[in-house]
Structure formats: C-alpha cells, structure tokens
Amino acid sequence: MTKRRVLFLCTGNSARSQMAEALLRHYGGDWFEVHSAGIEPKGVNPFALQVLAEIGIDASHQTSKSLDVYRGKMTFDYLITVCADAEKNCPFFPGQGIRLHWPFEDPAAFEGEDEAKRAKFRQVRDQISARIRAWLDELGLPSHHL
C-alpha cells in the first residue's frame, strides 16, 4: 500500500502545523506520510512539544522547516493550511494535490503566564486532534490510538 503524502503548512511551522503533523502521524500513520513546513519557519515552540507529550506523543524529533525544502522536490496528495496567513500567502507549486484549509487560532500568539499559555496550546491541540479524526472518518480510514 502506498501512503498518501500530506503537508501541513503554517506561517512559522512552530505550533499548529507541528501539532497537526504529530497528531496525523499518531492517528493515521499507517495511511499517511506526514510533513509540515512554514512560510517563515521560527523553530518548534516548546509548549507544542509539551502538550503533545501530555497525551503520549513524542514530537521532539520534529524540526521547523521552510516550504522551500519541499517545493519542486516532493509531491503531496494533500496540502493542508492551518492558518489564514498560510492560506493567503502559500504559492501554488507543482504536485500539491488537494488543497484544504483548516484554520486554527495561533496558540503562540497568546499572552499570559506559562500555565495559561499551556492551556491555550492544549485547547488548539484538541481542536486539531478532533479535526484530524473527523477527516479520517470522512476518508473512511480507521484511526489508531483513539
């Protein structure tokens, strides 16, 4: 079976796209080869890694990458933007496949104490998780690790 290739795209590739990459790999890794990138990569946000670890997902191996790492080098069955900026500013590139837009609030932009920031990251993590599981259902694919 050939895995479908997915690219999650966000502005900074620091939080939403990183969480989406880890969550889809966790729930649908048998069905998908998952990547993420940013238009202006900023490094992986430590809160994203922390809230993923809380639910048993180790994403410490993931890195923040530019869209240029993939453009012209790899084709994707799905390109999924997870923020309005990426949706607006993502150029078309050959091999992008089906383009989807799943907008989520940027938890990295939230101001407050660390515990309040962590709570915002958990909220967005759970929204992304629910969207991915719903998408797997829409595609008729079983989701693992529910």
Rank of each mutant, 00 (worst) to 15 (best):
Q50N: 06
M1W: 03
A134H: 11
V44D: 04
A48P: 06
E54M: 07
T75Q: 07
G29I: 15
R122N: 10
L100N: 04
V6Q: 00
R5P: 00
G95W: 04
E87A: 12
A48T: 05
A86V: 10
E21K: 13
K3D: 01
E54G: 12
V82T: 03
A59I: 07
A134L: 11
P142W: 01
S60Y: 07
T2E: 03
S17W: 12
P41T: 02
L79H: 01
G56Q: 15
V51T: 11
A116C: 00
S60H: 13
G72C: 03
E111K: 15
A116Y: 03
R16V: 11
W31K: 00
F32A: 01
E54K: 11
K73M: 05
C83F: 10
Q123N: 10
D126P: 07
L7Q: 06
K65E: 13
A15F: 09
L139E: 09
F32E: 00
L139Q: 11
T75C: 05
V82G: 02
A15M: 13
H144D: 11
K73D: 04
P107H: 06
S129I: 04
K88Q: 15
E33G: 03
M19T: 09
L67A: 09
E113T: 13
A48Y: 10
A119T: 14
Q123P: 06
E54V: 06
T81P: 00
H35V: 01
Y27K: 08
D30A: 14
V6S: 00
H26M: 14
A109M: 07
D137Y: 03
S36R: 12
H61N: 09
P103R: 02
R71H: 05
C90E: 01
L52Q: 12
L23G: 06
D77G: 04
S66Y: 09
I132F: 15
F121K: 10
E105H: 05
R25G: 09
D77A: 06
C10Y: 13
D85N: 10
A134F: 02
R4L: 12
I98R: 11
P142M: 08
S66A: 12
L23S: 06
S64Q: 06
L79G: 04
I80N: 08
A109C: 02
S17D: 06
R122L: 04
S17N: 09
A108V: 08
L136K: 04
F121Q: 11
V44E: 02
S60G: 15
E40N: 14
Q123K: 14
H145Y: 05
L139N: 00
Q123E: 15
L79T: 15
L49P: 02
T81N: 01
G38P: 15
D68T: 15
R122M: 05
A59L: 12
A59W: 05
F93L: 05
L136P: 01
E21T: 04
D114H: 10
A109L: 09
S60W: 08
V82D: 01
E111R: 12
A134C: 08
N45F: 00
N13M: 11
T75R: 05
F121Y: 15
F93T: 11
